[in-house]
Simulated scan of single mutants.
Amino acid sequence: MKKSLLALAVLGAFAGAAQAQSSVTIYGIVDTGVTYTSKAQTPAGGTNTGSKFAMNSGVIQGSRIGFKGVEDLGGGLSAVFNLEAGFKNDTGALDDSKSTNTLFRRKSVVGLAGGFGTVLLGRQTDFADTISAYTSVADFGGVVQNSGSALNRLQGTRTNNSVSYTTANLSGFTGNLMYGFGEEAGKTSGGQAFGLGGKYDNGPLGLGINYYQSKQGSTPADTSLLVGTTGQGVAASTGNTAAKVLNVVASYQFGPARVYGNWSRVKQDLNTAAATGLTAATRTTAATLALSQKADMYELGTAYSLSPSLKLLGSVQYTRADFAGLDGKGKLTQYNLGADYFLSKRTDLYAFVSNLRATDMKNPGVAGDTTGNDASQTAVTVGVRHKF
């Protein structure tokens, strides 16, 4: 009897050890807010404007459900995976702007991790998404995307068919390399992408830099180059450089206040006057950041912890954009104020007010809506976010 009990105890110990060596975690975010927008464009491309109330999912962070796991392979080596699906909490639909029915649109990777760092293969964001933690994206999320951070990749743009290597933390420094396969027969450069980035954390100081370049093709790795609802790129421009993006960010914690600033430059060589069809007469109604040949984006902001539960937020974004064949620069300026109150570590309430102004270009509108012919738009949002 004693031998049987001893055997059971040993088997139980081994089972517990085996279970500890492999784990799968289910996690997610549900983020939903109600937004009042002034001077929103009327339906069907109308030129009139009117106020609008709407419920939007993913105001600060995209609503999502994810699965991540790790298996201890021994010798300090682990197998890892991460699958993450985005959804719209206000409707329950998949959050898939390209309408390609992509289940794990946000992330789909598998790889190896150890003392050398981490290697991941699949669909993933480049390092601009990592260093966005030092910017207003960490506090305001999608509210600031239309003033430039969606174009400069700080909002988290995916690269398909990619492999990335991230170093281990080296005395505060972490580096990253990425390559995306264009998967085009007969032309390796068609649709390919690559990125190089790094960050440095030292107490209150945070610094980050990232460079990303992608080329057009029939199946571009850079998902920002996909058009329509087919998940395809522009085959006629195969192998031509379509996007060059540089981000430089910095953040410093002064007691209860975090202050930050950053600059990004985006060059889109394929955006020519012939391609966009822009004229001086249509500039203020059709010239968007996505059609610019070059854009410089600047930001300053702060997050002040008034108490352990309450943060007061403020930021300003300024963007200058050049359009092929047109003199002068289009300008966007966005002002944001907000408050974020944490009911617990996992649940918070937030309120934002933002004003976005455009000069010599179309006003894209504060996230979620667009303007008609008005150069200024204001949006007020209140919402709740829960993490699990």
Rank of each mutant, 00 (worst) to 15 (best):
L337A: 15
P364D: 00
A273M: 13
G74D: 05
V234W: 02
L300K: 03
S147G: 08
L291P: 01
S218L: 12
A375F: 13
K199F: 10
G69M: 04
I65S: 01
S164V: 10
R357W: 07
A40M: 07
D126A: 14
G186P: 07
N101Y: 11
Q268G: 02
G197A: 03
A375S: 15
S189I: 10
T166K: 14
T174R: 13
A128F: 03
S224L: 14
Y304R: 09
A303G: 02
K39R: 15
Q293R: 12
D348C: 05
N89W: 08
G368A: 04
V163R: 07
N169G: 12
Q293D: 12
T319G: 01
L83K: 12
S136F: 02
V163L: 13
S214L: 07
L300F: 14
G111L: 06
N355E: 15
Y304M: 06
V227N: 12
L306G: 13
A7Q: 13
T229A: 15
Q21Y: 06
T272A: 02
L177Y: 11
G69T: 01
A133I: 11
Y179A: 13
K107Q: 15
G197V: 00
K2M: 14
Q216F: 02
N336K: 03
T135K: 00
M178E: 09
T135H: 01
